[in-house]
């Protein structure tokens, strides 16, 4: 039986889709049979980030409507044989999702995969509820700033109230991924420190990902940062994927800027 992770945030633009894509590739690289499902119906993005947009024939709504079966709609990654992708519809809206059908789909995926990542839409309506409803674990993505943290707090509360597991008296695993940590801003005290975020949200820390300009280029070119060997964000996603696969990887100090190089050091001297 596979494990279902819902990637949620509340606020938009914090990096849910990037996180889903990178962690799916990461766990697939660790040898787990992984599928990543785009639940952002009507605003399909994950296919582009994964570089698979030209391969989408059927999407999740076709499965819901019975026009295609699961094996037809699943897209297999060319570079990694463990990685599969299920696209969202770009044309229909969220109302096509029905709870029973979503449950059926997720049950099917659990039969066939080790790890299932559900990329949730922003906000707290329809699509979001479907992703958390049958999730075993949620990965909450936040940026170190107040509105993102408050929205994360709100969705964690909703997970506790609405998920199937929570209703059955079991607990849903809740993990925090702090994304876009900017060492320069942390140094200037303009970003909220990790300890304070953990204090406010009180969920288990899964990982910290530093701000990395390569992420944008990676999205544009369809080659996620985790595949860039020298990218700091990519390395962070690599570590997080290993943690998800049960490896005990220590937390790196991404809050402090890496050595600035000789010019940076000299500038520092004359500050």
């Amino acid at each position: 039986m596979g494990i279902v992770f819902a990637v949620i945030s509340g606020k938009g633009g914090v990096g849910k889709t990037t996180t889903s894509a990178n962690l799916a590739i990461g766990t697939a690289m660790e040898g787990k049979k992984t599928v990543v499902v785009d639940f952002d119906i009507g605003q399909r993005n994950l296919d582009m980030i994964l570089g698979l947009e030209n391969r989408v024939v059927y999407d999740i709504t076709h499965i819901m409507d019975g026009e295609a079966n699961l094996s037809q709609a699943l897209i297999k990654d060319k570079k990694n044989e463990n990685l599969y992708f299920l696209a969202a519809s770009q044309t229909k809206d969220k109302s096509v999702l029905e709870r029973d059908k979503v449950k059926h789909l997720i049950d099917d995926l659990k039969e066939n995969f080790d790890y299932i990542f559900l990329d949730s839409p922003a906000g707290i309506e329809g699509g979001f509820e479907h992703t958390i409803h049958y999730a075993d674990n949620v990965i909450v993505v936040v940026n170190p700033e107040v509105s993102s943290i408050r929205d994360a707090d709100r969705v964690i509360g909703l997970v506790d109230a609405k998920s199937h597991k929570a209703k059955a008296g079991e607990t849903v695993g809740k993990f925090l991924l702090i994304n876009r940590i900017d060492p320069e801003l942390i140094e200037k005290n303009e970003m909220i420190a990790t300890d304070d975020i953990l204090d406010i949200l009180s969920v288990t820390l899964l990982g910290k990902v530093p701000e990395d300009k390569r992420v944008i280029d990676a999205s544009n070119t369809g080659k996620p940062v985790i595949l860039h060997k020298e990218s700091e964000a990519g390395k962070a996603y690599r570590r997080i994927s290993k943690r998800l696969c049960g490896e005990d990887v220590p937390f790196e100090d991404v809050e402090n800027a890496p050595s600035k190089g000789i010019m940076g050091k000299i500038k520092g001297l004359f500050k």
Partner: peptide
């Protein structure tokens, strides 16, 4: 957490954080 509302007619002892919202 944010978005949660606790209302009581009794005395209340809150042990944990009461978050923004």
């Amino acid at each position: 957490r944010s978005g949660q509302e606790i209302a009581t007619q009794k005395d209340l002892l809150a042990l944990k954080r009461i978050n923004s919202g």
